[in-house]
Design a protein around this nucleic acid. Structure first.
Lengths: 92, 92
DNA sequence: ACATTTGATAGCATTTGTGCTATCATAATA
DNA sequence: TATTATGATAGCACAAATGCTATCAAATGT
């Protein structure tokens, strides 16, 4: 079984230019993932969250299922009722 | 002279529903602002940064001048060469 | 003075995200 | 078993972001 880490390593070797794309995907995943976890931790449904944001459930679902990468303001709009915020920090 | 803080206070009183919009605008501004400051601190031009991101200078300018709110992946793409990253944290 | 750099802006075509509505399969529940 | 809740997904119209190219005024450097 090839793991995700194996795949990343493979791609970085075969096509170094892809490295930044991988990092980018992982950055997005880390943020959206945190969003999903928080919603589940709070035990609220996509519909409830969407209602709190004033947007349809389909929009939340599209983002959580990685069918689209959200706009910055859309992301913030969703994170707000979850008690989450975005912070800028320096790369270590 | 009416300050920005005065204006915010005013709007929050007159139209409480606008409060979240103000917070949203400020959240975006905080992130984009950090980006601008970092680029200036590094002393690199929009063109250089854009080149590092593989995008036109006009795209960077549009975002820095708040003519458009960036997509999450576009934002990450720009922050990367600046040594900046986005972090999710809990609202205090 | 002249040339160069810089940030902002324009127009256009294209891509992408979003709202809206509705449906569906599955899981949880009465 | 019937009902309901949930997440995913579809199609559509519309709004918005992006890439690309080019231009411009102002600042900077020679």
């Amino acid at each position: 079984m090839r793991t995700w880490d194996d795949y990343k390593k493979h791609v970085r070797e075969v096509d170094p230019d892809m490295s930044k794309d991988i990092d980018e995907v992982e950055s997005v995943a880390a943020i959206v993932g945190a969003l999903i976890e928080k919603r589940n931790a709070l035990g609220i449904s996509q519909r409830e969250l969407a209602s709190l944001c004033g947007m349809p459930q389909s929009s939340v679902a599209r983002i959580e299922s990685y069918k689209s990468t959200p706009n910055l303001d859309t992301l913030i709009k969703i994170m707000r009722p979850l008690g989450l915020r975005l912070t800028v920090s320096a790369t270590e």
